[in-house]
């Protein structure tokens, strides 16, 4: 562990980090351009555009999380409580979604 730490503080490592940060920043710039570029593409339906847009956003977000927030070399503890958080966000969404639209009815039963 202490050995690890030493590595992460060495000037070479930091210089390399600095470079990686610029590269990832560049990728994010390009990805933003792509997001705007594809918005008017006809992918069949608007839902496809939404799905595609969200896909790019998710990729960008993962890059920010992994590289910028150095989650890549973070400790397991953080992963543990982040994964719980994600589970509960999904729970909040899916379960209230089911509260609005019941699979057995297949139509909106109680949005208003």
């Amino acid at each position: 562990m202490s050995h690890d730490h030493h590595d992460h503080d060495s000037p070479e490592y930091l210089k390399k980090q600095s470079k990686i940060i610029w590269i990832v920043g560049g990728i994010l710039f390009v990805a933003t351009g792509i997001t705007v570029g594809v918005m008017d593409l006809d992918l069949g339906s608007r839902s496809m555009n939404i799905a595609f847009g969200m896909l790019i956003a998710t990729i960008k977000a993962s890059l920010v999380m992994l590289i910028f927030m150095h989650l890549k070399n973070e400790r397991g503890l953080i992963y543990k409580f982040l994964s719980f958080t994600i589970v509960f966000v999904i729970g909040l969404f899916v379960l209230s979604y089911l509260g609005f639209i019941d699979p057995l009815h297949s139509n909106l039963i109680s949005t208003k």
Binding site: T32, T35, V36, M39, R46, N49, I50, G53, M54, I56, A57, K60, A61, V64, M65, F68, M69
Partner: peptide, 20 residues
């Protein structure tokens, strides 16, 4: 870390509110 999170939220906000 907080600042990146703010950035991360915006990455989702931008397509959701401006584009889609």
């Amino acid at each position: 870390l907080f600042w990146h999170f703010v950035d991360l939220v915006w990455i989702f906000l931008f397509p959701l509110l401006y584009l889609l």
